[in-house]
Design a protein around this nucleic acid. Structure first.
Lengths: 334, 334
DNA sequence: CTGTTAGCGCATTCAT
DNA sequence: ATGAATGCGCTAACAG
């Protein structure tokens, strides 16, 4: 392994001069600079980032930690990456909830210290552990649930999004709209917030709220959603609209309805949530609440940058606005 | 920041004893152990992984570096994570091709040294740079193109997969099958390998190979695929089958065909490549070549583990077998 | 079983 | 503009 000392010897200068050349910190005379760079090239020197980190206390790296990088988080992470890199840092992705047996997660506090800043998705996270732990690293939480006051936090306008989607389908003529994937469980904020929006839209339109139309699903996968949807259809419960809590859930529902010969949007309107890249291509185009990845990323990274710059004011709890994107799966589109 | 020395003082032992307790290296007497653990708890000590890395030369971390973590790589990374974690290490994801202006990538060799091992996707990678660089870190390349001999490399059986899909559609009655997203460009291995499989299937069936049926697309997105497909349909070129080079491309084609009133599979059969989780839910279910994420991940991680264990034999260039998964988008399914 | 010594490679501080 | 000393926090190797 070639070290800075080797470069220094090769160039006939001190170690500090090499360091100054590479970091462009103190001014260095041009001839000296050239000799150093030549030595770097000749020896193929690469800085040891670990040593730099230990000494300088800075990694120039931010971590985005989430349960997985499928679908939603995959799209969000792309936006985040651009913003972090614009700030001259690297972004790395880590997953919580790795092994199934570890149920929640094995988020190591020690690992957080490897980064200058951390964006942490609170989906499926053990909040209590966070609460108890003294974390020196700047950190911003992302996700649809309550978190302790002292953390910066960014979430979506879940209720409003669900209300928009549901109201739009009511305008389009639906009267019996399923809330697929929603729950009455206040402990699960996302599913109950979005249910509240669905409820609000129904009430605003003078429709009743029948709890049979709130259909929970065992997990947030298309497969589970498909099964739940088939059960509903086969049960004979009449419905003419579906608000799916995420696009992935909507996809499962679309599959189930196609199997049973229900036409979209003629027989049933359907809307999802997230506006994943793919959903505009699912015939006839899935109406969806745009989760505003861009806005979410900007807000989160903005808060993180502020914190990394030494800001110590009170934590902010931001709610990012969403909007409805109307496509062929609902009637009366713009 | 509480250091090991603080814990040692609190517990009335030496720093080494603390280290030995935490790493379970040398045996430590039970009462001593208990005192150390108590001190760790009391002070809220967390090990400094950077210092450990600098000293021990080991991070217990593997990086998977790819262009993005949408779709295909997102699914592969989940499989890889499980295998890496089974080996007692962490997996982190990094992206190449960050900013659009940096065209290819800004893969920093220095960063590779932060990891015990690296899995590197060669899609959109500047191979020449890799070739020139002396990399001390164990590394395995993944992806559908040729790489220098000396690197371990895992790729898919692209030609065979494309052949399977195309032959299956021919069996189902198609006679004019588009190769959507394929090219004659030998510099782009994936698109030309898969084109070769399509060609082979056509020739085996006694059908001609008309270059007009090889339809390149500007980029691997559903939107670009949709545009290309609409152009083909509107051009009047007769076709009754589509082999799409990836599922994402197939999705764009499905969207285009729905817009133009072409029925799947009655008018046109279509098959994709990758077998992404979502494609079984796209009505009527997309036939696809399973890219064997599991097999790919196992092979790649296996090679990496071997290298990290000190193996210095010749590099291996593995080709992972694929299989066809038949669904409703093609006729004559099993 | 436990403690002592030494140093991983770099950047901060101060001296020249 | 350049160099020398110092230590970031930890663990390998050995001594007791």
């Amino acid at each position: 392994m070639v070290r800075m000392a080797d470069v220094a010897r090769e160039a006939g200068v001190s170690v500090m001069t090499v360091s100054n050349v590479l970091n462009e910190r103190l001014p260095v005379g041009e001839p000296t600079r050239a000799r150093v760079m030549a030595a770097v090239e000749a020896l193929g020197y690469e800085v040891n980032l670990t040593a730099r980190h230990l000494r300088a206390g800075r990694t120039d790296t931010v971590a985005f930690i989430a349960p997985s990088f499928h679908d939603y988080f995959g799209e969000v992470s792309d936006k985040i990456a651009l913003l972090i890199e614009a700030g001259g840092r690297h972004l790395v992705l880590e997953r919580t909830s790795a092994s199934p047996e570890q149920e929640m997660e094995a988020l190591s506090v020690a690992r957080l210290r490897l980064y200058d800043g951390v964006l942490l998705s609170v989906a499926g996270l053990d909040i209590d552990r966070l609460e108890r732990v003294r974390i020196p690293t700047p950190i911003v939480l992302l996700g649809e649930r309550d978190v302790p006051e002292r953390f910066n936090h960014v979430r979506l306008a879940n209720e409003e999004g669900a209300r928009l989607a549901t109201a739009h389908m009511i305008e389009g003529g639906s009267r019996r709209i399923l809330a697929l994937g929603c729950t009455f469980d206040p402990g699960h904020m996302m599913s109950s917030d979005r249910r509240l929006g669905w409820e609000r839209a129904c009430l605003d339109a003078g429709l009743g709220v029948d709890p049979r139309y709130v259909v929970p699903i065992s997990e947030y996968s298309s497969a589970a959603a498909r099964d739940a949807m088939l059960d509903v259809i086969d049960s004979g419960l009449p419905f003419d609209g579906v608000f799916a809590i995420t696009d992935i859930i909507a996809l499962g529902a679309v599959s189930a309805m196609a199997d049973r010969g229900l036409r979209i949007p003629a027989d049933v309107q359907i809307a999802g949530f997230d506006n994943l890249d793919m959903v505009r291509f699912i015939p006839p185009g899935l109406t969806s609440v745009d989760a505003n990845h861009e806005g979410l990323a900007e807000k989160a990274v903005g808060l993180l940058h502020r914190q990394m710059s030494g800001w110590t004011g009170p934590a902010e709890h931001a709610v990012v606005p969403v909007r409805l994107v109307v496509r062929g799966s609902t009637r009366g589109g713009a």
